[in-house]
Design a protein around this nucleic acid. Structure first.
Length: 663
RNA sequence: CGGGAUGUAGCGCAGCCUGGUAGCGCACCUGCUUGGGGUGCAGGUGGUCGGCGGUUCAAAUCCGCCCAUCCCGACCA
């Protein structure tokens, strides 16, 4: 297939002619090329090499040590590699203290955040990239050193190097873990949130093995651990969609160009980000096919064929599908070229019914976000400029991320009669008169996972709400000092696993004997498993186990027999606490502003939601965006209408709105 | 689409300025050791130096073109 705007060498008609369109991953990164003999001079070269002496200058002490590599580090905030490493070490030391004695909550780093700390001067040493054991003379107790000296991770740049080598799946039967394929031994380090939130996010996504970059820009691979979260989301949201009377169906990926063009605003809105197929079977197509950026065009066209009578209404169909939008800037989960979502498309006899449906689904999204993802959202209506292309009214739920930026979590549109008109959907009503239905559409995507990560995550990695966590409990067996763990601890751990699974708890036993318990703790904390169950010889003696919460790291000793019940309680508690904590964060970072100065000041600093009056004028909105990056996120549905004046221009404002910098 | 950066082993990097045997740490493999917060030791495996072309006896290194990714902006779930 050929994609417009992508005259890529792997994507010629050849691929299609082969009837596959795709080659094996490795090959695609390195397309077959004609052999060339440019490299066959190796032997002659070595001969000459041996005949010559190595230039002494290479090892000369006069060599200038600084090079491009060093400058690179300095470019980001003026710190050399050594500084950064020292910084990191100091930061972690501070974290330890924080754990023992949590200080006051940082305004911009939600509850468990550690805040940005400047390393004490004594640990700021010269550069020493890649040098191990550059001890700073502090005799550290052996208790727990979260980060032993290691080469400085590259936490200021993320680089992608094509296709990763496939790793064989480890079968569950042999004690493997199907959701975590790479059994690497180091805990992959994560940039602290306060240092660089974007990098933190990418580190979390990649290192927890939720997703990885694919060979095509913006096309990520959702790995098993990430996909398990999506499956949990899907299962629950699907249930909610069906409970509200909808049924699932599936419509084609390809949409003929002429279909897409029927609704003017719609096509104008989406054509810039459309991918087109122009070749099929080796031949130029008569009509280009869009790879769906959304399915209104396709689905409404079919509705025109299906709907004849008022008795056919309402039509309440949902589909789970993939979507392609040619985005210029992409980030895993948050904005990818291809993404997964559900899109509902409904038809109704009256405007009131359509509006009711639109609001009903907005409510579904809201409760889903809060109950499943533990992410508080602000439901509201979009401004004209943020409206869906072709809609009458667009509503959304907006969440506030840890860095003070807002994320549109899901949208619900009242499409009016625009699409019915454009696609010729007509029926005979009760009075035997021709009538046009009112349509709606609503969707939520894999972006939700991004929101989930950015709402709850901390410096140690992911924090997953129990309801969507692939593993709710991980069992870490502690080997005895003497003897074989498979004699005592392991069988007991397996018993515990069976007991938890029987109780309907998603549990995993980490029985890798190549890792130390301490490593496992950190590893699963990074992956956000809500509860850890430690089981060692001492516990077995007392017929108990140790439960540790991921979010608070609180420990509890509980009798083994009572573990399932206690775990269920704890999981519920964690779920509740996460939502509460996130709510508090949103509340703490939502400001009702009364002056333009204050507005600008907050946007220049910690950002967050700003509640203010707005005149409703698009130009005024654009000016605000230009000056502060903030846009109208939503005109809230709750909290009452408070007329006032526009924060920017002073004109009368019919209602208050939520402003924020958007993702 | 503009600006910036990067591409050397699975990951993180050095080597490039001044062309001459491709290196280090981690991971991985083997063995021993260790195990309640990231064990230690010893020995190994692994590289089209992003691609193509040019200069040269010789290119990771110099030159040109291309590709890809990331970051920051302008546009959008």
């Amino acid at each position: 297939m050929a994609l417009r705007r992508l005259p890529h060498r792997h994507r010629g008609a050849d691929d299609v002619r082969q009837g596959q369109g795709r080659r094996a991953g490795g090959e695609r990164a390195h397309p077959p090329l004609p052999a060339h003999g440019a490299r066959n001079l190796g032997d002659a070269r070595s001969e000459l090499l041996r005949a010559r002496e190595r230039p002494a200058a290479r090892d000369s002490p006069l060599r200038v040590p600084a090079r491009a590599g060093d400058d690179r580090h300095r470019l980001r905030g003026g710190l050399g590699a050594g500084h950064l490493r020292a910084h990191r070490r100091a930061l972690h030391r501070l974290q330890l203290e924080h754990l023992r004695d949590p200080g006051p909550a940082q305004p911009l780093l939600p509850p468990q955040g550690r805040g940005r700390q400047v390393p004490p001067p004594e640990v700021r040493s010269g550069r020493g990239a890649g040098v191990r054991g550059a001890e700073d003379g502090v005799a550290e107790p052996r208790v727990w050193r979260p980060l032993p000296d290691r080469p400085l991770p590259r936490h200021h740049r993320r680089r992608h190097r094509g296709v990763h080598r496939p790793v064989a799946a480890v079968p569950e039967a042999s004690g493997g873990n199907p959701l975590v394929m790479e059994k690497e031994r180091t805990l992959k380090e994560i940039t602290p949130r306060g240092e660089d939130f974007s990098q933190w996010y990418l580190d979390v996504v990649l290192k927890t093995e939720m997703a990885d970059y694919g060979p095509v820009k913006g096309c990520m691979i959702i790995r098993p651990y990430g996909f398990a979260v999506w499956e949990a989301i899907q299962a629950d949201l699907d249930r909610r969609i069906k409970e509200t009377g909808h049924v699932n169906a599936y419509f084609p990926l390809f949409i003929p160009k002429s279909f897409l063009e029927k609704e003017k605003e719609h096509v104008e809105g989406f054509s810039p980000e459309c991918a087109w197929v122009t070749i099929g079977g080796g031949e130029e197509l008569e009509e280009p096919l869009a790879i769906r950026p959304t399915s209104e065009a396709m689905i409404c066209s079919m509705y025109a064929k299906w709907v004849r009578s008022w008795r056919d209404l309402p039509v309440l169909i949902n589909q789970w599908a993939n979507i392609v939008r040619w985005e210029k800037v992409t980030r895993p989960f948050l904005r990818t070229t291809e993404f997964l979502w559900q899109e509902g498309h409904t038809l109704h006899g009256t405007e009131e019914e359509a509006e009711e449906e639109t609001m009903r689904m907005l409510g579904v999204y809201r409760s889903f976000y809060e109950e499943m993802l533990a992410v508080p959202v602000v439901p509201g209506r979009k401004s004209e400029s943020e409206k869906f292309a072709g809609a009458l009214r667009t509503y959304s739920v907006e969440a506030l991320m840890g860095d003070g930026k807002a994320l549109q979590g899901a949208t619900s549109h009242n499409l009016g009669q625009h699409f019915a008109t454009a696609y010729g959907i007509e029926y005979l009503d009760r009075n035997q008169e021709r009538a046009k239905p009112w349509s709606t559409s609503w969707g939520a995507s894999t972006r939700m996972i991004g929101g989930l990560i950015m709402t709850h995550g901390d410096d140690a990695g992911l924090v997953l709400p129990p309801k969507v966590a692939p593993y709710q409990v991980v069992i870490v067996p502690i080997p005895p000092r003497k003897g074989d763990w498979s004699e005592s601890v392991l069988p007991k751990a397996r018993e515990a696993l069976a007991m938890l699974r029987a109780a309907g708890i998603r549990a995993h036993l980490d029985d890798r004997d190549t890792q130390q318990p301490g490593f496992k703790y950190s590893d699963w904390e990074m992956r956000g498993v809500p509860l850890r169950l430690e089981l060692g010889p001492k516990d077995i003696e007392k017929d108990q186990c140790v439960l540790v919460r991921r979010d608070t790291r609180e420990k509890a000793f509980v009798p083994l027999a009572g573990a399932p019940a206690r775990i269920r309680e704890l999981l519920d508690q964690v779920q509740k606490d996460l939502l509460e904590r996130a709510r508090k964060f949103v509340a703490d970072n939502t400001t009702r502003v009364s002056s333009w100065d204050e507005f600008r000041q907050i946007m220049a600093g910690r950002r967050g939601f700003l509640i203010a009056g707005w005149c409703g004028d698009a130009e005024c909105e654009a000016r605000i965006k230009q000056e502060t990056k903030a846009t109208v996120r939503v005109i809230p549905l709750e909290g009452g209408v408070r007329p006032g004046t526009c924060i920017r221009c002073g004109q009368p404002s019919p209602q208050e709105v939520y402003f924020a910098q958007a993702y």
